[in-house]
């Protein structure tokens, strides 16, 4: 029996095994490859997406938990790639390899949605679950702080 998920605003019918992690469903079944595989255990954050606006690790979230809900991936975070975080990432020249950055941005977007004016400590705490092996951490923190500032002004 087919069930529905709303992915980036589009309703999608699915009949896959509900135990399949959302990560592999997004990547292999519906081709949203912006969401990345990193560890498979919720340890690195590369696979972070939103369910109803809240950050989840899609590698340990079964498709079942997304049924009837709104899933947002990096491809759907903004219409024209102009979310303040995406703009800040470009401005601060954050990415090196860039592989973890979709997860970093999605996690930061959820963080700012909950706390629009985070302190440096709160940013650091909120981003602890996301690993960047290239070591772009300081630029990520600067980009989040500057995006938060811009969002406050807007």
């Amino acid at each position: 029996m087919s069930k529905k998920i709303i992915i980036n605003g589009k309703e999608v019918s699915t009949d896959v095994d509900g135990n399949m992690p959302l990560l592999w469903y997004l990547r292999d079944e519906v081709d949203y490859t912006g969401t990345k595989f990193g560890c498979g255990m919720g340890l690195c954050g590369a696979c972070t997406v939103h369910i109803d606006g809240k950050a989840v690790r899609s590698c340990i979230t079964p498709v079942n938990q997304a049924l009837g809900k709104k899933v947002t991936t990096i491809e759907g975070l903004s219409e024209n790639g102009d979310h303040p975080l995406q703009k800040a990432w470009v401005e601060h020249k954050v990415p090196q390899c860039g592989y973890c950055q979709a997860g970093q941005i999605m996690n930061a977007a959820s963080l700012l949605a909950e706390n629009p004016n985070p302190s440096a400590d709160q940013i650091e705490q909120g981003m602890q679950g996301n690993i960047c092996r290239c070591g772009t951490y300081n630029r990520i923190k600067k980009a989040i702080a500057s995006a938060a500032e811009k969002m406050q002004e807007a």
């Binding site: 991936t73 995406q86 020249k93 860039g98 950055q101």
Partner: peptide, 15 residues
């Protein structure tokens, strides 16, 4: 700037 930074931040860079 990196030639591909715009693609990275929207999840369109193909690894």
């Amino acid at each position: 700037p990196r030639h591909d930074v715009g693609e990275v931040v929207v999840g369109k860079r193909t690894y």
